[in-house]
Simulated assay, not measured.
Amino acid sequence: MAWNEPGNNGGQDKDPWGNNNRGGRDQGPPDLDEVFGKLSRKLSGLFGGKGPSFGGSGAAGLGAIAVVGLVIWGVSGFYTIGEAERGVVLRFGEYERIVQPGLNWKPNFIDEVRTVNVEAIRSLRGSGQMLTKDENMVNVEMDVQYRVANPEKYLFSVTNADDSLRQATDSALRAVIGDAEMDEILTTGRQQIRERTQVEINRIIDRYDMGLLVVDVNFDAARPPEQVKDAFDDAIAAREDEERFIREAEAYRNDILPKATGRAERLKKEALGYKEKIVNEAEGDVAQFDKLLPEYEAAPEVTRNRLYLETMEQVYGNTSKVLIDSQEGGGNLLYLPLDKLMSQSSQPRSTEDTTASDYGIELESTQTVAPSNSNSRQSTSRQGRY
C-alpha cells in the first residue's frame, strides 16, 4: 500500500519530506539550511573530500552554485566562425556587429550569432513565357549567379533576400524581353539581352539594399511556343545561311582585293617606268638632234652619208645575213649567211679549195630592163632571197 493510504504504519512514521511523524505531529518542509548542507556534502564528495565545505551556510551554498553556473556559462559562450563565413551578432535581438572568422566568445542569453557564408556562389534560375515587343510569345530561361556582399543587409534589409532576388530577376527579365523583338531574342540580340538583364537586376538590388552581389547572368535558352516552333526553326536556319554566305563573300573579297590591289600597283609602277623611259629617250633624241643640227647645216651631204652608214651598221649588227650588191656586171646579188659561215669556220676542211656553194652563197640573176632613153643609165633591179 502507498505511504499515504490509511492503515499504513510507514505513512504514520514518515512524511513526503523525509521527516518522522510520530505521535501524529505534522512537521512541514525541511529547513533550507539543511538542504544546502546536504548539497555541500555531496559537492565535497565529488571533489574527493577536498572541495569547499559550506558548513551549512545558505549564502555560501548559493555562492558556490553561482560560481559553478558562471563557469559553465562562460565556457559555453565560445564559438568558431568558418573562413568563408561572417558572424552577425544580435544583442537582445538588435544588430550589434559583424564577427570575423576564427574563435570568438559571446555572452549566452544576451548575444545571438547568425553565420552567413559570403564566399559561396549561389544560383537562381528564372524562366517563364513572356510577351515580346512585337506581340509574340517566347519561352525564356535564365540563370543568375550571386553571393552575399553584406551579411547585415542580407539578413535584415528584406524579409527573405533570396526570394526577393527571385522576384527581382523575374521582373527584370520580363521588362527586358518586353522591350525586345522576337527575332532579336532568338538570334542576334542574346548578348545584349543578358547584359541589360544584369544591369536591371543590379538596379533593383541597390534600390532595396538587399546586400547581394550578382556575379554573372547566363541567358540559357529562348524558344518560341511549340505551335510555331517549326516555322521559327526554318527562319533561324535561313538567317544562319545568310550569315554564312556573308562570311564566305567577305573571305573571298579579302582574298581577291589584295591580289587585285597588288596587280594594280605593279601596273602603275610599270607604266610610270615606261613613261620615264620614253620621256628620257625622247629627251636624248632631242639633245642628239640639237647637237647634230649645226653639223648638218655645215655639211648636209657628209652628214647624211654618215647617218646612213651608222644606221646600216646598227641594222646589220643585229642580223646574221648580209646582202652584197656587185653594182657592176650582169646584175647579180650576193647572199651571205654569216651564221652558217661562222659555224663552219669552227670546223677545219680537208681541202683548201672552197667555192661559193660550200659557204652556202647563192647567186641570183636578175633581168636588166633597158630604158626607153638610150642616153640614160641602165637601171638594174636586184633582189635577195632571205
Rank of each mutant, 00 (worst) to 15 (best):
N150R: 08
E119V: 08
G63N: 11
A168F: 08
L165M: 07
V88D: 04
M142D: 03
L165H: 06
R125T: 09
G128N: 06
P101F: 07
I72A: 14
T80P: 00
N108C: 02
G93F: 09
A59W: 05
G61Q: 12
D134S: 11
A180N: 12
I121F: 04
Q145L: 14
Y95N: 12
V138F: 02
N160Q: 08
L70G: 12
R166F: 03
V116T: 10
D111Q: 15
V158F: 06
M130C: 05
D143V: 14
G126Y: 02
D170C: 00
E85I: 01
Q129G: 09
P107Y: 08
R91T: 15
G69M: 13
R97N: 10
S123H: 09
V144I: 15
D143K: 15
W73H: 12
N160E: 10
P101L: 09
P107I: 15
V144Q: 02
S171A: 15
E181S: 01
D143Y: 01
G93D: 12
G128S: 10
R125L: 04
G82C: 00
V158R: 15
A149V: 06
R147V: 03
N104E: 14
V113R: 09
D183E: 10
V89H: 04
E181H: 03
E135F: 11
F109R: 08
A175Y: 05
K153Q: 14
D134E: 13
N150Y: 01
V116F: 03
E135C: 00
N160T: 01
V158N: 13
G61N: 09
A64P: 02
D162V: 07
M182R: 06
G61P: 08
G102A: 04
L131T: 13
V116C: 07
G69E: 13
I65Y: 05
F156G: 11
G61T: 10
A84E: 07
E184Q: 08
I81P: 02
P107M: 14
G178Y: 04
A59M: 11
L131D: 03
I72E: 11
L131A: 11
V113P: 03
N136F: 04
V99L: 15
S76W: 00
R147L: 12
R114I: 11
E181A: 00
W105D: 04
L155H: 12
L155K: 13
L155C: 14
R174L: 03
E85L: 01
G82H: 06
L155A: 11
G63Q: 15
E184R: 07
S127N: 08
V176H: 04
A161T: 11
G93I: 02
V140D: 06
E94H: 10
V99S: 15
E94W: 00
V158C: 12
R166S: 10
F156W: 05
F156I: 08
E85C: 02
K133F: 12
N117L: 00
G87H: 05
G126F: 03
R166C: 00
E112G: 05
Q167D: 03
A84D: 11
